[in-house]
Design a protein around this nucleic acid. Structure first.
Lengths: 78, 78
DNA sequence: CGTGTAAGGAATTCTGACACG
DNA sequence: CGTGTAAGGAATTCTGACACG
């Protein structure tokens, strides 16, 4: 949770996605990168995995809203 | 070896050292950060540990040359 | 020797917006 | 809806150098 250490540039390299895509997933509340004092995003490896998963699901036909609901369900499992 | 993903800014935060110190240890061949296409340094958590170790040793009185020799010895252990 | 700092430039990242479909 | 892109600005990082001790 506190190991958000890489820039969007690294995430871009690791995932092959565009900055636009990566930022959009945050806009839709699917990932929550930390921020530096200056305002730059900082991601963890967990976030990278999540981002790749999101992209996969989108290609499968899901939309960001459905993915948000789904991740909420996961968190609420008892 | 391929997990060099954080900027000098993160290393600075994690170690409390200055950019000058962090860069100097590289200048003295004690750490070997990767570089982005643009030329920015990228460090791994291993590097961060190494940097902290270097700083500790320096405070103990060692100089960068001795530390370089020492790390070379470690690598050559058979 | 190890570190601080001011200097100027280049690379990185940010936001809000318009575009397409 | 998910993504591309040009725009302008701000934050980040880089190098080489002078300084101190």
């Amino acid at each position: 949770m506190n190991d958000q250490i890489m820039s969007i540039g690294m995430v871009k390299e690791l995932t092959g996605l565009s900055e636009r895509q990566i930022r959009y997933y945050e806009e839709k509340q699917l990932v929550f990168p930390a921020r530096t004092k200056g305002g730059s995003r900082r991601y963890s490896f967990e976030d990278v995995k999540k981002i790749q998963e999101i992209h996969r699901k989108l290609k499968e036909g899901y939309n960001t809203y459905e993915l948000k609901i789904k991740s909420r369900r996961q968190s609420n499992v008892i």
